[in-house]
């Protein structure tokens, strides 16, 4: 009789020890806990200010895209799977651009104002679709930005195809990069704190079981509105920020690649983990810059990457890496054969 083998996964001893904070007894154990947590914060800090000036621009874009990915992941974990983050981005961008261009507001007013107005308009746009869930919601969110793009194109509002140019710039690249990084960390830690709080559990519950939320005496529509407002607010900030960064605004803000990027980052990094999207954005951001020469093939590569990951590694990179870090895998003999469970 041939003995079969199966793969066994067990926690590393150090993981078992460090699970409980009171058991920490050596530098090695503390390092085991601290290093993976400090690595991104310190790494990004160093990277942002040490890279050559050209790549600093890339870092800014990466941070902004990281925020969009976080916002997508947050909304997805509330059961609102949007395929059109570009809508929020564009609304924020146009609000800030209009505030700066038509009202002459300075940059430190137009960005917060643009964010706020954008988030309100976005929520209003999405409000009719809140009765939908799952696929239906995704379908509608996919087409709203594309339709709005056609509206801007054909009616010529806000500069139409030309867009608005000559907006106020940021004072300097260092300020820009610092601002975007701070915003990214605020978004990340803020969302994580929110999801882990008792109030945030309601958002998690929305996806798990919206009818039970309703049976708990909470209006799911109201909580979905809140989730959309938070999620779209983040994207609107990104839009407002990038408008001033590029000093112009155009129809490309509605484009499909802006909707695809956050999804790609989340899927590559690992959906529903918040760290995953961040990791995904840090990988994909510079990658997309490196692929700039390919022009329109850039989006092809994103989309192909997205498709590959969703089929091959649906859990994403972060859970995969975390598992490798925390667990040992080994082949053991299974004398009784492998059960079919």
């Amino acid at each position: 009789m041939s003995t079969e083998r199966r793969k066994e996964r067990i926690d590393r001893p150090i993981k078992a020890v460090t699970d409980d904070i009171f058991c920490l007894s050596s530098i090695r154990e503390i390092a085991y806990l601290v290093i993976p947590r400090m690595l991104p914060v310190v790494g990004l800090l160093l990277l942002a200010f040490l890279v050559p000036p050209y790549w600093r621009k890339v870092m800014v874009i990466t941070f902004v895209m990281g925020m969009m990915a976080l916002s997508w992941d947050f909304m997805a974990s509330c059961g609102l799977t949007s395929l059109g983050q570009a809508l929020f981005f564009a609304l924020g961008a146009y609000s800030a651009g209009a505030a700066n261009h038509y009202l002459g507001l300075p940059i430190y007013l137009s960005i917060p104002l643009g964010t706020l107005i954008g988030a309100v308009i976005s929520t209003a746009c999405i409000y009719p679709t809140l009765g939908l869930r799952g696929i239906y919601f995704s379908v509608v969110t996919l087409i709203i930005p594309l339709m709005l793009m056609r509206v801007v194109e054909t009616t010529g509002i806000f500069g139409g195809t030309e867009g608005i140019t000559g907006l106020s710039p940021f004072p300097g690249i260092i300020v820009t990069i610092a601002l975007s990084m701070i915003a990214l960390w605020i978004t990340f830690f803020g969302l994580r704190r929110l999801i882990d709080s008792d109030y945030g559990h309601i958002f998690v519950a929305l996806k798990d079981n919206d009818r039970a939320v309703e049976a708990s005496g909470l209006s799911i529509r109201w909580f979905k509105v809140q989730a959309i407002f938070i999620g779209s607010g983040i994207c609107c900030f990104c839009g407002a920020f990038m408008t001033h960064y590029y000093m112009s605004i155009g129809m490309s803000a509605f484009a499909v690649d802006l909707s695809i990027f956050p999804i790609a980052a989340s899927v590559v990094g690992g959906m529903g983990t918040l760290v995953g999207p961040l990791l995904g954005a840090i990988i994909l951001g510079p990658l997309s810059e490196a692929l700039r020469a390919f022009g329109s093939f850039r989006v092809v590569i994103y989309a192909a990457l997205l498709g590959t990951f969703i089929v091959m590694l649906p859990e994403g990179l972060f859970p995969y890496l975390a598992r490798k870090y925390q667990q040992i895998e080994r082949w053991v003999e299974a004398p009784g054969g492998i059960s079919e469970d």
């Binding site: 995704s138 695809i260 022009g295 989309a303 498709g307 969703i310």
Partner: peptide
Amino acid sequence: VILIRLRGLELSEVIATLSLGIVILELLRG
């Protein structure tokens, strides 16, 4: 090739078909 591995995971199906569509369209554009 693709969807049979994702049956039942609505979100993954959507993402997979959307990304394939975008690959086709943007490839043609390129």
